[in-house]
């Protein structure tokens, strides 16, 4: 009988960023480009979150779904992992028409974005912890 690796009691927490992805972007293009991309991401997500909050408050399902989906894609492209996961969950709740869970997840998403901004915002993305 072969020894199987022990199953961890709890799954490791999802990291804020996929450092491998960010490093690869900096390596393939440049650090300057990565910084530019991060700034673009932060500004764009900021606007989109505002619109998403409005859509959810107005219970506009179609627009809210589209915004959540785009946010998920943007985060995936840059390697902003946990934000992507939360945006994906919000999309799931919206698809199910669960507005109460959507409201809660939106608050989580806004909080996560504040965290992402604090990590990525003022400093060099590739050099951030």
């Amino acid at each position: 009988m072969t020894d199987r690796p022990p199953v961890p009691a709890t799954l490791p927490p999802t990291p804020t960023l996929n450092k491998v992805r960010l490093d690869a972007i900096a390596r393939d293009v440049s650090h300057e480009f990565l910084n530019e991309l991060v700034a673009l991401f932060l500004a764009d997500v900021d606007q989109k979150l505002e619109r998403l909050s409005d859509d959810i408050r107005e219970r506009n399902l179609e627009r809210a779904l589209a915004s959540a989906h785009t946010l998920k894609g943007a985060a995936a492209s840059l390697g902003v992992v946990r934000f992507r996961v939360v945006a994906g969950k919000l999309e799931d709740f919206l698809e199910r028409g669960d507005w109460r869970a959507s409201d809660t997840t939106l608050v989580r998403l806004l909080r996560e974005f504040a965290h992402v901004r604090s990590v990525l915002g003022p400093q060099d993305a590739a050099a951030s912890p």
């Binding site: 972007i25 393939d28 293009v29 480009f33 530019e36 991309l37 673009l40 991401f41 764009d44 785009t70 894609g73 943007a74 492209s77 840059l78």
Partner: peptide, 16 residues
């Protein structure tokens, strides 16, 4: 692509 971050990244890779 409707997301500007993805578009900028993909464009830069392709132009490169």
């Amino acid at each position: 692509e409707d997301d500007i971050t993805t578009r900028r990244l993909t464009r830069t890779w392709l132009e490169g």
